[in-house]
Design a protein around this nucleic acid. Structure first.
Lengths: 111, 111
DNA sequence: AAGCTATTTCGATAAATCTAGAATTAAGCC
DNA sequence: GGCTTAATTCTAGATTTATCGAAATAGCTT
């Protein structure tokens, strides 16, 4: 059984890489059905094998999910997991400071 | 100049380790003046040198700050940075999902 | 200054991560 | 079946990270 802290750490670690953070960003802003790996590759301009490796890391951490559609694989964000993670981080790390500003606005403007 | 993504990734990476996450947890919940390294050490029961290494990682990432008080060093959380990070993560990774539940409650119950 | 405590820095080793070319699998199409 | 596209897995090398004992530093206290 993996503890809460260990799981959160694994997920944060998965996010702790510029390329993976950029990948997730794309995936989050992409279509709900998921973004094809190939599109991510051409956008981010990195070798396919490297991308695949990072995608596997994100998927292993449970941050994204995969679905095949013909020959293409579509990656989409698991918002439930992302929420759980931000919630955990919030309560664990930011709550505790006494006078805190209000929580970040949930889903407003994005470019 | 380090980009926004790179900086966020560095900070997330710093959080992406069970021991460091546990450290931050203690520090956040500890006194505002900061928690002595020695107390962290006895609580977490890890070698002093290992702890020091992790503390340096957290400090380098800007998540915690240090202040000397006699022979002891007190570590305290930088809530501003933590906020900025959670905000970034929120807007970057969680906004984008269409029907989102309300944001996590800011600072309510903690055990 | 000598001694004590708190903590870091040094040094060394084991393990994990990152990267990417080459080979492989998976699926559709003629 | 054979060809093409999409993506992964294999393999390997370079770099980084994690760990921790031993040695060094910083600051009391007497």
């Amino acid at each position: 059984m993996t503890g809460r802290v260990e799981q959160a750490a694994e997920r944060l670690k998965a996010l702790g890489h510029p390329v993976r953070l950029a990948i997730l960003r794309r995936v989050v802003q992409g279509p709900e059905a998921g973004t094809p790996a190939g599109e991510l590759q051409s956008r981010l301009d990195i070798p396919a094998s490297t991308l695949s490796h990072h995608l596997a890391t994100l998927a292993d951490a449970g941050l994204v999910q995969v679905a095949r559609e013909g020959t293409t694989l579509r990656y989409r964000a698991d918002f439930g997991v992302l929420h759980a993670l931000t919630d955990y981080l919030w309560q664990d790390c930011c709550a505790g400071g006494a006078a805190e500003p209000p929580p970040p606005s949930p889903c407003c403007d994005r470019d």
